[in-house]
């Protein structure tokens, strides 16, 4: 690990050096939720349940932030119209979308 070479360069209280938004945890995912927009009724129940704040709503449609979605499948489980399907991630992770 690169970084500080001396203790005195470290913060007195162990704290973050970057914002958690810079840590793209989506790479942990083995299943990817995919939304069928023909079925989606925009109820936003998935938005309520998503533990990673990875469901986005732009005012007209629902999308998923694959940078942070860990593929837990809660959205697919909770969706009342079965509009979310969990698809196995094939090959290497390429940053989503």
């Amino acid at each position: 690990m690169s970084g500080s070479e001396f203790i005195r360069e470290l913060p007195q209280v162990p704290t973050t050096v970057k914002l958690s938004t810079e840590l793209k945890t989506g790479s942990w995912r083995s299943y990817r939720p995919v939304i069928d927009h023909n079925r989606c009724v925009k109820c936003l129940i998935c938005w309520v349940y998503c533990p990673e704040l990875s469901i986005r709503w732009d005012g007209s449609s629902v999308s998923i932030d694959y940078d942070f979605c860990k593929g837990c499948g809660i959205c697919a489980h909770e969706c009342p119209v079965k509009a979310v399907t969990m698809v196995p991630e094939g090959g290497g992770y390429e940053g989503g979308r």
């Binding site: 913060p11 007195q12 209280v13 704290t15 973050t16 050096v17 958690s20 810079e22």
Partner: peptide, 26 residues
């Protein structure tokens, strides 16, 4: 006490405050 936070570019109190966000328990 204060800590230097690189992404804020300044020293801030080492406490949880939404205006100067830091993580504790890292």
């Amino acid at each position: 006490v204060k800590v230097w936070v690189p992404y804020l570019g300044r020293e801030v109190p080492a406490v949880l405050d939404g205006y100067t966000p830091i993580s504790l328990g890292i």
